[in-house]
């Protein structure tokens, strides 16, 4: 099996949402359903010295997230029907609509907020890594759309040297599911266990 993975350069991302819009347009997803989301992570403080000068420990950075196509996906673990599955050839995780009952357990269990139940369609939906484009030798649409070239996609062995396995806030510690997301972290990046920051755009991403 060739495990495919996303690469995200956190030092380049400006949070422009082009990846998100391109995905939404390409997948023609319904209102309220996004397969790729951009999280704004913010935190820290500003303080004033005795001589009146301000210094800042504040941080802000963006995380563009689709599915991490994890090694041990929580969504696959809990799926009662086996509809949520990991492709044996590519390692991409997707939903078999012919098996899904739309129970939503995948959405509850995923710590990356990826699967969603499309109530109109009656089944779960999620980022499948644009599997049909990958099969044609193309990149997922979000990767090609990124104007900053902050996203890459390819076999894990080709990408893993470009950064570290995703283990920064606001993501969960990597040991839970083994995400196949390689990140080049911005200097502002906080560890996954960070409790000082918060996602500043919860309404947009939930």
């Amino acid at each position: 099996m060739t495990q495919y993975a996303f690469y995200f350069d956190s030092t380049r991302c400006t949070g422009c949402r082009t990846c998100e819009m391109a995905c939404k347009d390409y997948k023609d997803s319904s209102e309220g359903i996004h397969f790729r989301k951009v999280y704004d992570y913010e935190g820290g403080t500003c303080s004033m010295d005795d001589d009146g000068q301000f210094s800042s420990q504040a941080f802000v950075y963006h995380m563009s997230l689709g599915c991490q196509h994890c090694n041990d996906p929580a969504c696959v673990q809990v799926c009662p029907t086996g509809a949520m599955h990991k492709d044996a050839e590519t390692g991409l995780v997707s939903v078999d609509e012919g098996k899904c009952i739309g129970c939503g357990y995948c959405a509850m269990a995923c710590p990356y907020n990826v699967p969603t139940v499309d109530r109109t369609a009656g089944h779960s939906v999620k980022c499948d890594g644009c599997a049909e484009r990958v099969a044609e030798g193309k990149n997922p649409i979000c990767v090609d759309a990124c104007p900053l070239r902050a996203l890459e996609f390819g076999p894990l062995e080709d990408i893993s040297g470009m950064g570290e396995v995703a283990d920064i806030a606001p993501l969960p510690p990597a040991h839970y599911t083994g995400p196949n997301l390689i990140i080049k972290a911005t200097p502002d990046a906080q560890p996954a266990t960070d409790a000082t920051g918060i996602v500043a755009n919860p309404v947009e991403v939930m």
Partner: peptide
């Protein structure tokens, strides 16, 4: 969402 597929639950 789709109870028609409920029999697949046996698989899990």
């Amino acid at each position: 969402g789709n109870p028609d597929n409920a029999l697949y639950v046996i698989a899990g």
